[in-house]
Design a protein around this nucleic acid. Structure first.
Length: 405
DNA sequence: AGGTATTCACATGAAACTATTCTCTGAGTTAGG
DNA sequence: TAACTCAGAGAATAGTTTCATGTGAATACCTGT
């Protein structure tokens, strides 16, 4: 009887699913790598960049260019959009212009000097081994390859601040020097950075040659976010699926941070997915709250499952001691950490390393760690969790399982 | 009371080390002529 | 003699350790009133 009932239920679920019209027409439009035809509220920046890059169409090397702005302000989008347009015009007029986009943060793609250059080689169609070669050998391959034909290269280096922080700024010096070694071809760089004061830390020579023009992308305000969301929602969802106030709430949530359009779009997309999964015909404002919680939870669970064991033990130790006292110091955590290591037979790391791990957990947004000085009490990080309280037990258990504690 | 020197408990930096993965090179080996 | 194999040298990289230096402000310690 129960079986029969269950079967019917499942059948009708599938039937219903089939009959039901999906909320989405095209989910891609809400994904972060989507480039829309019209970019709202960035006309000024696009024009400025276009002006700088236009000489490339006459085969003159344009000025190097730097774009600054917080995450989700449309830097990458605008850069990609503009170079794509140039690429199209160039193709139409048979101009030998090549454009590349590299994200320097992507692990194992372009996050070191060697990988950056080898990735460029790969884009040019030369296979370069992932390791084993000296770096200047790869430079040589790259130079040889572009010198074969007279070409103008436009290279976008996204999140270049990450690369420099990790590997130092000689890499930029090497890149700018490339042009003087090239006889036939020329290269122009477009750097993109989240860090507004990034160029201050650079060697002045590098700075002056790499950052000939600079543009700052201001954050979107709530009204602008609303327009962007409306525009995309129109294409992504079927008509009348988005409830009253949903767009506004999405925009408000994202504006609360710093006008992060990427986050706004993600919220809307996830809200749509939740509504669809729940078999609802409309996306309501409550779905946005659920979306926010889900994004947060997924982010953390993803980190927990992918990070190495040492991170897990550290986080577990933080959870343990934070649960009691609210805020904890590095030293306390390290003590707990050592105990925990012993109980799961892992060789503990030095305090130096654990300190770094704590800093990284902070970067990932799982915890809030603020360096404070307590006078004679010394200087330390004051740590508390940055996770909604509801999710804590789940994380706790997840960690516990992962560590066999 | 007011000023300043100390001191705590780590933070932060730099360099060096370990272990792994990969290429390149050249000596030694093999098989065919 | 040409082709093949295979060990060893050298690179890149991630994750760490070791050593060294930095640091903000509560407190101890003076000083002069």
């Amino acid at each position: 009887m129960d079986d029969k009932n269950y079967e019917n239920k499942l059948e009708s679920f599938f039937e219903g699913y089939l009959k039901k019209e999906p909320l989405f027409i095209n989910k891609k439009i809400l994904q972060s790598n989507y480039t829309p035809e019209i970019i709202l509220h960035r006309e000024e920046q696009i024009n400025q960049i276009a002006e700088v890059l236009a000489p490339s169409l006459r085969m003159e090397k344009p000025s190097n260019l730097f774009l600054f702005g917080k995450t989700g302000t449309g830097k990458s989008l605008v850069a990609i959009y503009t170079i794509n347009k140039i690429s199209i015009i160039a193709k139409k007029n048979n101009l030998p212009i090549k454009v590349f986009y590299l994200n320097c943060k992507l692990k194992r793609v372009a996050d070191t000097e060697y990988r950056l250059i080898s990735q460029l080689c790969r884009e040019l169609g030369v296979e370069v081994p992932a390791t084993g070669l000296p770096t200047d050998e790869v430079y040589k391959i790259f130079i040889r390859e572009i010198e074969q034909t007279k070409t103008l290269l436009l290279i976008v280096l996204d999140e270049i601040d990450q690369l420099v922080r990790k590997t130092g700024d000689e890499i930029l010096y090497n890149l700018t020097r490339l042009n003087s070694e090239l006889k036939e071809s020329q290269i122009a760089f477009i750097g993109i950075s989240n860090d507004l004061v990034f160029t201050d830390s650079l060697d002045p020579r590098v700075k002056s040659s790499l950052s000939e023009e600079e543009f700052v992308f201001p954050p979107y305000d709530a009204i602008q976010l609303q327009e962007i969301l409306r525009e995309r929602a129109k294409m992504a969802f079927r008509e009348k699926v988005v409830d009253e106030g949903v767009i506004e709430k999405c925009a408000a949530y994202a504006a609360r941070e710093h006008g992060d359009a990427r986050r706004a779009l993600e919220l809307l997309r996830v809200a749509g997915e939740i509504a669809e999964r729940k078999n609802e015909t409309k996306i309501a404002t409550k779905h946005i709250d659920m979306a926010e919680a889900k994004i947060e939870k997924d982010k953390i669970l993803d980190i927990i499952t992918t990070q190495p064991k040492q991170f897990k033990i550290t986080l577990y130790s933080i959870l343990e001691s934070e649960g009691k006292t609210g805020r904890v110091r590095t030293g306390e955590i390290y003590e707990k950490y050592k105990e925990n290591c012993k109980s799961c037979f892992v060789k503990p790391l030095t305090q130096r390393r654990v300190s770094d791990i704590i800093a990284e957990l902070d970067m990932l947004g799982i915890i809030n760690a603020k360096v404070i000085s307590k006078g004679r009490g010394g200087r330390t990080r004051e740590i508390c969790l940055a996770v909604p309280a509801i999710n804590i037990p789940k994380i706790f258990n997840c960690l516990k399982e992962g560590l066999n504690l």
